[in-house]
Design a protein around this nucleic acid. Sequence first.
DNA 1: AATGAATGAGTATTCATTCAT
DNA 2: CATGAATGAATACTCATTCAT
Lengths: 196, 196, 196, 196
Amino acid sequence: MKKNKPKYKQIIDAAVQVIAENGYHASQVSKIAKKAGVADGTIYLYFKNKEDILVSLFQEKMGQFIDKIEHETTSRQTAEEKLLTLIETHFEQLAADHHLAIVTQLELRQSNKDLRQKINHVLKGYLDIIDQIVDEGVEEKLFRENLDRRLVRQMIFGTMDETVTNWVMKDQRYNIVDQAKEVHSLIVHGLAGPHQ
Amino acid sequence: MKKNKPKYKQIIDAAVQVIAENGYHASQVSKIAKKAGVADGTIYLYFKNKEDILVSLFQEKMGQFIDKIEHETTSRQTAEEKLLTLIETHFEQLAADHHLAIVTQLELRQSNKDLRQKINHVLKGYLDIIDQIVDEGVEEKLFRENLDRRLVRQMIFGTMDETVTNWVMKDQRYNIVDQAKEVHSLIVHGLAGPHQ
Amino acid sequence: MKKNKPKYKQIIDAAVQVIAENGYHASQVSKIAKKAGVADGTIYLYFKNKEDILVSLFQEKMGQFIDKIEHETTSRQTAEEKLLTLIETHFEQLAADHHLAIVTQLELRQSNKDLRQKINHVLKGYLDIIDQIVDEGVEEKLFRENLDRRLVRQMIFGTMDETVTNWVMKDQRYNIVDQAKEVHSLIVHGLAGPHQ
Amino acid sequence: MKKNKPKYKQIIDAAVQVIAENGYHASQVSKIAKKAGVADGTIYLYFKNKEDILVSLFQEKMGQFIDKIEHETTSRQTAEEKLLTLIETHFEQLAADHHLAIVTQLELRQSNKDLRQKINHVLKGYLDIIDQIVDEGVEEKLFRENLDRRLVRQMIFGTMDETVTNWVMKDQRYNIVDQAKEVHSLIVHGLAGPHQ
DNA sequence: AATGAATGAGTATTCATTCAT
DNA sequence: CATGAATGAATACTCATTCAT
């Protein structure tokens, strides 16, 4: 299995770094190879082509990202706690890897439709976790019954994503993890006051 | 003023069409020129470079987009109504111009960081409208007092944006305007039930 | 019509020269462009791709080559004279353009099957001329009746081609035109003596 | 002596097959190695480089080819019979090995000048046999005295070669051996009728 | 103002060959 | 002897931009 060989991970990590530092369009294969400490041709022993590096990068990193979120959320009791943990873990992981945050929030979005389709496929696993927490919340009577699952998913993911993107575009100058509680509160209770 | 000359608008409309039909990366200047019915060189009498076409396109179209939203919302009484009108008008306008929806939600995001910074600058005007409605809602005691303006803005914009993007990626196969009320409800009341 | 523009011919002549001097595989597009005095990109305003330069080169040069042979042979009376004129004109023209001789006899044969198919298509016109002369010879009772046209064509063309190739491979060190009469005699009378 | 080791012949036979099936340019060393059932590196224990495989292939196969022709012709009495046998054996051998026919008539000609020089060196032995038969024919007064040996050689070889190449290019759809007698007749008697 | 022919910088990928095991 | 992972040189083509007319 190529994915377990050290050079596979070396190249992916080099790609994250090169893309974060140079931007998507200035990230030539030769630059990634150099940073990974391998010859240009070696890249093609581990990846089909340049796009395959990027897709694999996303799968690899997002796979871990999602696994971690899944692991953290399942250890919580209520749906409300799970949702808070999901938001916190989402923010924490990106805060812990500045390069990865830049790559996922800004650079990889410059890719073409084709690559974005593949990225969305990976994200599907994440959306499933969100769906399940919402379902649990409804069962626990914490959340309203008649929620449109798709819209809820879009609100939760859209809010987190927009929050992270803004933070990255502001050069990560503030602590995004501090905002998790407030984001959670907005998602659970909305804008309206308690007497509404 | 070049912006009032007919060819200026001709070129921008051609660009929207060409990008929507061919995708961002397959939209060469020569293709836009051909669709606009002008020579390649003529483009450069009206725009500094290719990026300038895209920025101008966004300014022009988003300017109208935002003006319309501003006009519709000001005619409403309460912040809650204004917010609903904002969401409805946002969805309606993109539903009314399929080409523009594709270009703003998918294709223009493939541009580089630099262009996206300029796009964000244009969006600033939109975010100001959102902020003002939130402020009004707080004053009217409809919304909670201690809301973090930036987070609220990100929730509102992020939710709408994610909703529209999903609709475009699903080839606009359902009526997005139908979802405005539910999106509004989620933003105002969140996931929690009334007894929470 | 692009074929009448001066740069079209400039590029083709440059290609002949570059290929003759450097060999097929060392003839990069950029080298041809430089020799032609145009930018690399200009090549692609006149030719679809590299192969198209080579096909066009062959069509252009062989077109003239065949026209000349056709013109010279039609002015002769008998089939025997026509055949001699054909051989002489074939040899003369290649002797007059050393570069072209190298390109057609050696370098262009290194091309792939696809290009060679196209080259053969051009040669069809030449083979038609040969066929017609043979037909005339048979009618005039100069040649045998029961000749297999395809084999005759292959003998005539194969003999001339092998003769020219040998001459080119020997660096064109002798005068090939001097051999036309003897080649003609071999083709018409074969190896056998008069008493056979 | 490496040439007697089994892998030497294995690799050469694999090369013939791979080149015939994939074409010269799509015949990578790794493909030949795979077909031969050896590692890429092993190729270089038996051959200096890729060109050396091709030269050796030609030497090996053409050596047998020429030996067979030599053996068959010496058992004939007259030069005329020997020539017919030569043509027949030439055609028979290529008809019996379709792969080899493709490789020698089409694919190997795509090689560069350098390799073709070496191939010509191998063919020298064949041309010597032709020369000797012609000499015998002249001595026997079957052939004319004043024949230019080189031209005769070129006529005989050129005609056979062109005939075989045409047959291969027509996907070997007819029986080339059937044409040996007629080719022989053309070479011996030429186009002219008996009364010429 | 308008044209469009010409420019030329920039880059992913292949594959013959090597050499540590 | 044999392996096969690693190497790295080499090249056609696109397209935003210019500028002479």
